[in-house]
Amino acid sequence: MGQTGLYIEARIRADLDDLWTRTQDPAQHQRWDLRFTEITYLPREEGEPQRFRYATRIGPFLTVAGTGVSAGERERPDGTRTSALRFSSPHPLSLLAEGSGYWRYVPDGDGVRFLTGYDYRPRWGRLGATADRLLFRPLMGWATAWSFDRLRLWLERGITPERALANWLAELLIRTLVITIACTALAPAASFPLLGPFTASLAYLCPLLLTVAVCVALFKAPLPCTPAARRCLRTPPTRSRAPRVLRTLENPR
C-alpha cells in the first residue's frame, strides 16, 4: 500500500490450540493486544467470513472504531494454521483508513512460531503519509511486538495481560526514577557545603554515576516478567507471502 508492510514474529512455547484460542476469541484477544480496546464479532450467515467491529481508545473521551472481516484455516496439510483479515475505519480522526493482514501459526518443536504481516493505507494525504512514516508506523510495529510478547508471557508463564501491563509500568517508573535521581546528583558542588574536602571528588564522580545510571536505565534488558518488543523478530527470515485466503476477503465498508 505504498510503504513497507510490518512483520512481527514471536516464538511461543505453548500448545497450538491454546494459542489459537487466545488469538481467535475476541474477549481474550482484546486483553493482550495493545492496539485494541474492544473487539466484537458481528452476526453472520453460515459459511460466510466473520465480520467484526473493533475500537481503540486514544484518549479519555475519544474512541476510534472500525469494522473488519476475517477468515481462518485451522487445518492445513502442512500442519500450520492461518488467519487473514481486512479492515477499515471511517472515523475522520483515524490515521488508518484501511488495511489487510494475516496471522500464521507454525509448529516448531515444543512451541509455535506466531507471526503476522500487515499493511494499511493512511489518510490525510501527504500530511498523513509523513506522520505515518515518522511516528505512527514505528509505533504500530512496537505495539504489535510488545503485545506478542505479552501474549507469550500469558501462555508460557501464566502472567495475565493485566499483570504484565502492571509489571511494565512499574519497571518504566523505576527506570524513570533512576534517571531523575542521577540527574539530581549533578547539582552544583556548592549544594554540598558540609562535604568539605569531598566536594571536588563528588564533582568528578557525579558525571560518572549519571552516565552509568542512565545507561542501565535505558539499555538494561527488561525483567523476564515484563513484556518487551525487543524479544520479537521484526524482519522476516525468508520472503513472506500473504496467504491465499486473504484474496477471498472483500474490503469492509
Rank of each mutant, 00 (worst) to 15 (best):
25 D>G: 03
143 A>F: 04
117 G>S: 14
155 L>A: 02
106 V>R: 09
111 G>S: 08
207 P>R: 06
216 V>T: 07
231 R>D: 11
199 T>I: 15
209 L>H: 07
88 S>H: 05
140 M>H: 04
106 V>W: 01
246 L>D: 01
93 L>Y: 07
42 L>V: 01
91 H>V: 07
5 G>L: 12
168 W>M: 10
5 G>T: 08
129 A>N: 03
186 L>D: 10
90 P>H: 03
1 M>V: 05
122 P>S: 11
185 A>C: 09
3 Q>D: 03
106 V>G: 00
209 L>K: 09
56 T>F: 06
125 G>L: 01
58 I>H: 07
29 H>C: 04
222 P>V: 02
108 D>P: 01
218 L>R: 13
119 D>V: 13
94 S>G: 00
217 A>H: 02
169 L>A: 05
153 L>D: 06
176 T>R: 14
179 I>D: 10
76 R>W: 00
160 T>P: 05
47 G>K: 13
38 E>H: 15
246 L>Y: 03
92 P>A: 04
158 G>D: 11
3 Q>T: 05
135 L>F: 06
215 C>D: 10
112 V>E: 00
234 R>L: 14
164 A>G: 02
117 G>Y: 02
99 G>W: 00
223 L>N: 11
83 S>Q: 10
118 Y>W: 06
238 T>A: 14
82 T>S: 04
213 A>H: 02
182 A>P: 01
33 D>A: 07
137 R>L: 02
10 A>E: 15
47 G>T: 11
162 E>D: 06
74 R>Q: 13
121 R>N: 05
223 L>T: 05
175 R>H: 05
177 L>S: 11
205 L>T: 03
42 L>T: 01
59 G>E: 09
156 E>L: 08
165 L>R: 10
157 R>T: 10
76 R>E: 03
170 A>W: 01
67 T>H: 11
176 T>C: 09
120 Y>R: 05
244 R>C: 08
162 E>H: 12
151 L>R: 04
59 G>C: 09
26 P>M: 04
223 L>V: 12
108 D>A: 13
57 R>C: 13
79 G>H: 04
85 L>I: 00
206 C>E: 15
37 T>M: 01
122 P>R: 03
227 P>I: 02
195 L>H: 08
121 R>Y: 05
138 P>T: 09
1 M>C: 04
34 L>W: 05
224 P>Y: 10
73 E>K: 09
209 L>V: 14
142 W>D: 15
132 D>N: 14
60 P>M: 08
157 R>M: 10
200 A>G: 09
165 L>C: 04
111 G>Y: 14
139 L>C: 03
194 L>G: 06
126 R>C: 03
42 L>R: 10
77 P>Q: 02
160 T>S: 15
42 L>W: 02
112 V>C: 03
199 T>Q: 15
208 L>P: 04
128 G>C: 06
165 L>G: 00
85 L>Q: 15
8 I>H: 02
163 R>V: 08
38 E>Q: 14
187 A>L: 13
53 R>C: 07
46 E>K: 14
240 S>M: 10
122 P>E: 08
217 A>E: 05
172 L>V: 12
205 L>I: 08
145 A>I: 01
128 G>P: 02
129 A>Q: 12
32 W>M: 04
102 Y>H: 13
147 S>N: 08
